[in-house]
Simulated scan of single mutants.
Amino acid sequence: MSLVGFAGTATINAAQSQMLIAIYIIGNIIAWGGIGVLLIFYKLDKIYPRIITEMKQREAAEAAKTTANA
């Protein structure tokens, strides 16, 4: 923004206005594009059932070990 002379308190000229518009539009497009790419590689939904099964097996093993030691 400093490249187009934006000061924050002064009146905004056309170049500054275009820069603000570009930041809000292009910035959002880039951010949402990045989020979209991350969601393409999101795998938790696929491996979640396996994680839950392993956690239940560990809990059962810990419970059996605790019961055997008591």
Score class of each variant (00 low, 15 high):
Ser2Val: 07
Ile25Pro: 15
Ile25Cys: 15
Ala31His: 03
Arg50Gln: 15
Ser2His: 06
Gln16Tyr: 06
Ala64Cys: 06
Lys56Ser: 15
Ala31Met: 02
Gly33Ala: 10
Ile51Ala: 15
Gly33Phe: 06
Lys56Trp: 05
Ala14Ile: 12
Val37Gln: 04
Ile12Phe: 03
Ala61Phe: 06
Leu39Ala: 04
Tyr48Gln: 14
Asn69Arg: 00
Glu54Cys: 14
Ile30Ser: 01
Lys56Tyr: 08
Ile26Ala: 09
Val4Glu: 14
Leu20Asn: 09
Asp45Leu: 15
Ile12Thr: 06
Thr53Leu: 08
Ile35Thr: 10
Ala63Cys: 06
Met19His: 10
Gly36Phe: 09
Lys56Phe: 09
Tyr48Cys: 15
Pro49His: 01
Phe41Ile: 07
Tyr42Asp: 10
Asn13Pro: 12
Leu39Asp: 04
Tyr48Trp: 12
Pro49Leu: 01
Thr53Lys: 07
Tyr24Ala: 11
Ile26Cys: 08
Ile23Phe: 07
Ala60Ile: 01
Gln18Ser: 14
Ile12Val: 08
Tyr42His: 06
Glu62Trp: 00
Ala31Gln: 04
Gln16Thr: 12
Ile52Thr: 08
Ala70Gly: 06
Glu59Lys: 05
Arg58Gly: 15
Ile29Ser: 11
Ala64Glu: 03
Gln16Met: 09
Thr53Gly: 15
Ala63Leu: 02
Thr11Ile: 13
Ala64Asn: 04
Ala22Asp: 05
Ser2Ile: 09
Leu39Asn: 03
Ala60His: 02
Lys46Cys: 11
Val4Arg: 10
Ile30Tyr: 01
Thr11Val: 12
Ser2Leu: 09
Gln18Val: 13
Gln18Lys: 09
Ile51Tyr: 13
Lys65Val: 01
Met1Val: 10
Ile47Asp: 04
Gly8Ala: 01
Ala10Phe: 05
Glu62Leu: 02
Lys56Asp: 15
Gly27Lys: 00
Lys43Asp: 14
Val4Trp: 07
Leu39Lys: 02
Asn28Cys: 12
Leu20Gln: 06
Lys46Ser: 11
Leu3Glu: 11
Met55Glu: 11
Arg58Asp: 14
Asn13Gly: 13
Ala7Cys: 02
Pro49Gly: 03
Ile25His: 09
Ala63Asn: 05
Ile47His: 02
Met19Lys: 06
Gly27Ser: 01
Ile21Arg: 08
Leu39Glu: 04
Ala64Val: 01
Ile47Gln: 01
Met1Ala: 13
Ser17Trp: 01
Gln57Pro: 14
Ala31Asp: 05
Leu20Phe: 04
Val4Tyr: 13
Ser17Leu: 02
Met55Lys: 08
Val37His: 05
Val37Leu: 07
Tyr42Gly: 11
Gly34Leu: 07
